[in-house]
Design a protein around this nucleic acid. Structure first.
Lengths: 226, 226
DNA sequence: AAATCATAAAAAATCGATATTTTTTGTGCA
DNA sequence: TGCACAAAAAATATCGATTTTTTATGATTT
């Protein structure tokens, strides 16, 4: 009997069309290639992602609970619209979860945890330096490494469920940012934030780290043109 | 064009077999009728809930993101097992979310909010009184009204996403409690907690209300026997 | 004439049956 | 006991049928 019940919160969908569709659609929604408010028609998605109806609908169903897709019975699926109220809600919820997790991490984090942060920051820094030269090419990459850096900061928090929720609102926040800028546009202030947050965190200065992180999360997206 | 994109976090699955299956399975998992660690075989569930493969799998997919079902690619679905670590994780996450939401509610709640709390408490009190006489008959009802009472307490919190996450961990916490007791067994201390929490909340004594709520959430389930 | 309502046609979502693929179980052999 | 292979079971995916919603059209009312 090698069929063990997996731990809660597990979602191993490797090697299935469901998994492929799930990841692809998730990626496209976060990147705002599937635009906020857009109707997700099954027939269209089938040709776009090259899978049948069933795996497609199952992937969409999974995304519903993550808030990246909304469903109405017998009416189909949509990309949820982006509104100011929702964005503020997402930002403040992210502040609550992420500052708690950062405090907890600073309290119990070990050498291994510190090393992961330094490594993630290094990778992030690389893209940030490259961003000035070729913004378009490094934009998507920046978001991914930004996510990994923030995850590393709070990885020592023992509450797995809280981290899971943080992941969800992070993705949602990511999407609102990306949908608000037509062209890649990242403030150098954001980059500076990262350095300061890391320094305060490694110095175990919880109060300062949390304050910096709050400002960082609340920082509004750069206006499109300048 | 009456097809409007619904707000994020919406899940209206009315009148679909998916919705029926989703609610039924969710209910049975929380009530531990589908037991922790149990394999969820599609063929069995089809006869049990009287629906076909497609709506069944979609319902299960939705439950995966809520943590009430786990999935392994090509291996199928399980009811997640209950472990001590997971339970502590769930409890502490619930404390973080629910105390924040209670504080926020006390800060901004209006008359309407207060009325809902009093009403929910009244309904809950009724079942709690009935519980002494017929525990088996009022057990499931108690859980539902308990949930409604706790939701009423924090309903004025403006962060919809935080409330949504609270709902998820509440259900998970509910399940761990129910799976730990073979026979209905609720402590009178729990009932007393409710009264005190309500009083402190309506008195707008945030510090006291939060302290009581923390103790209440952390209170372990009654041991099965006496 | 404009607006409302009913009806029909088209489109789309939903569902179940069947075929395919993968995993699990069972059996014989080294 | 361990391994290879075959059989069975189970999950997954595709397809087509059914149901529901949406759109289009025309008649009726104000």
């Amino acid at each position: 009997m090698s069929s063990e019940a997996p731990r809660p919160g597990t979602s191993d969908h490797s090697n299935t069309l469901i998994g492929k569709a799930f990841e692809s659609i998730r990626k496209d929604i976060i990147a705002s290639e599937l635009k906020p408010g857009e109707k997700l028609r099954i027939a269209q998605l089938r040709t776009r992602y090259g899978v049948g109806t069933s795996p497609l609908r199952e992937a969409l169903s999974r995304l519903v609970s993550e808030g990246l897709v909304t469903a109405r019975g017998q009416r189909g699926f949509w990309v949820p619209p982006v509104s100011v109220e929702d964005s503020e809600d997402i930002v403040e919820t992210r502040v609550v979860l992420e500052t708690y997790a950062l405090r907890a991490s600073i309290k119990v984090g070990d050498d291994e945890w510190e090393g992961q942060i330094v490594g993630a920051y290094h990778n992030l820094r690389r893209v940030e330096q490259r961003f000035a030269d070729e913004p378009a090419g490094s934009f998507a990459e920046w978001w991914e490494r930004n996510r990994l850096f923030h995850e590393a900061l709070i990885a020592a928090c023992p509450l797995k469920w809280l981290l899971r929720f943080q992941h969800i609102v992070f993705d949602l926040h990511n999407r609102t940012h990306r949908s608000s800028m037509q062209t890649p546009n990242l403030s150098p202030d954001l980059f500076e934030d990262h350095r300061l947050i890391m320094e305060a965190t490694l110095a175990r200065d919880a109060r300062k780290a949390v304050e910096l992180l709050e400002h960082h999360i609340r920082r509004p997206p750069e206006p499109a043109g300048e």
